Amino acid sequence: MKMAASCVCRAVLSQTLNRFRSVGRDLIRISALHRTHLDHSRESVTGKRSACWVKISRHESGRNFQNSQRGGGGVLWAAVAFSLFSNSDEDQRDEAQRKEDEMILLLKKAKLSLIRGQLQAASSLLHQAVALAHQTHNNQAIIYTYSLMANLAYVQGHLDQAEKLFKAAMSFMLSGGTPQDDNAVIEMSLKLATIYAEQNKTELAEHGFRFCMESLEAKLDKQKDVPAEEHTEEQEALRKETRLLLGLCLDSRARYRASTRHLNQAGQDYLNALNICRQEQGETHPQTLVLMSDLATILDLQGRHDDALVLVQQAMDLSRSAGHPDQHVLLGNLAGILLHKGQLDDSVRFYQEALSLARQAGDQEAVDRIQEGLKEVKKRREEEAAEE
């Protein structure tokens, strides 16, 4: 049971690690729900079931009846009683199977609704699924569905509801024997810290980030003590997963620190996250490029425009060669830095290129931000003309 729960926790954790990315000050990002795995097999949600039924054939019943005529009635009644209990048990199993199948169907429908952007429909379907999970006392399914509901509530901006759902999921995980330093528990703790940061609950946010960082660093220190020749594939996968989660924590804390204008600390967190991403995912990985752009944004805010420009141009060159899916985001950052440097013509050129790509990608929020940047360029030009 504990192993099955751990598998579900891993599925929940993979929702974050597969999208190890940044949400920088001026950037639009992919929502957490893009990585929800709603189409798990039945075994991954509920665990394997055995079906061992005992049935009494008509021939056997007749023989038992003959035996009862010769004083063997006890055998008949035992068989009849067993048959009745077996049928009852089978009915219960059939009902449990029906509810399980219905729950899986609801999760699949919820996934389809999310893909279509029908968030209210997805929320309704997930509520129905979690009700079935409670009816069947399926803690693994409860944890899994609560985590999806929490992510959805967060995306919808319902922070109080998201907080309660994450706490509920964590409660079921911990009561089921999941260790407090399990990566899935830490990942949910990180989401709670992010929620507290958005709610301006400074003490809770800082405590949450500190717990996540210290727990992950302690795990990585323990893993270093294991001789290289004793490392298994599973241990290596866990090491990489833990480092990526540490990178995500650094990324999240950097955003929080930037929002509170602690730019030096934010820059250090971004740099550490960038180093982890480079080492684990490679120089041209989309997340590496996003982190380079985010770090450039911090440098720009610190007035280090030349350093910021070098870094974001490097990210742009790599993104073009690698076919980065969010080039318009990087171009927008590049245009903003050029604006701050006073290179207005170059800024407009890159803003327009970013605008075209953002429209092609259907990224309306990025479109809005780029248009704001173009308005700022226009304002700067008018100010310069007035001074002349």
Rank of each mutant, 00 (worst) to 15 (best):
P325I: 02
P325A: 02
E365R: 01
L355A: 05
F350I: 02
P325V: 01
A322Y: 12
L357C: 00
V290E: 14
Q360N: 07
S321Y: 03
Q287W: 03
A366H: 06
R369W: 15
E372L: 08
L301T: 04
E280F: 10
Q360M: 09
L309P: 12
D300N: 05
I337H: 02
L309I: 05
T288S: 13
C277R: 15
A354T: 00
D368I: 09
K375Y: 13
L330D: 00
V329I: 00
L344S: 06
D363V: 01
A354K: 02
D363F: 02
E365M: 03
Q327I: 05
L295E: 11
L331F: 06
Q360S: 10
A308E: 02
E283Q: 13
T297P: 01
L309M: 15
R278C: 11
A315M: 11
H328R: 05
Q352H: 14
Q279S: 14
D368N: 15
D307C: 06
T297H: 08
G323A: 05
L344P: 13
L355T: 06
E372W: 15
I337N: 00
A354Y: 04
A361C: 05
G282M: 03
N272M: 05
R320H: 08
N272Q: 09
N275C: 09
L299F: 09
S321G: 01
D345T: 10
R304Y: 04
Q371N: 14
T288P: 15
G323L: 06
I298F: 09
R320C: 09
N275F: 02
K375C: 14
Q371C: 15
M316Y: 11
L299P: 04
D300G: 03
L339P: 00
E353I: 10
H305N: 09
V367D: 04
A366C: 11
R304G: 01
I298S: 11
Q314C: 13
L355D: 07
A358F: 01
L374K: 07
L374N: 09
M316L: 14
A361W: 06
G332P: 02
I276H: 12
V348K: 11
C277D: 11
A322V: 06
L334Y: 00
A354S: 09
E372H: 12
L334D: 03
A322C: 07
R304H: 08
L339Y: 15
G323I: 11
D345I: 06
Q314T: 07
A308V: 05
Q281T: 13
Q313A: 00
M292N: 03
A358E: 03
D300T: 00
Q313W: 08
S356I: 10
R349I: 07
L309E: 14
A366S: 13
S293H: 06
H324I: 03
E283R: 15
S319F: 08
S293P: 06
M292D: 05
N272D: 11
L295T: 05
N275L: 07
R278T: 06
A322G: 06
D326M: 03
A308C: 08
H340M: 04
Q327A: 00
I337D: 00
V367M: 08
L311S: 04
A335T: 01
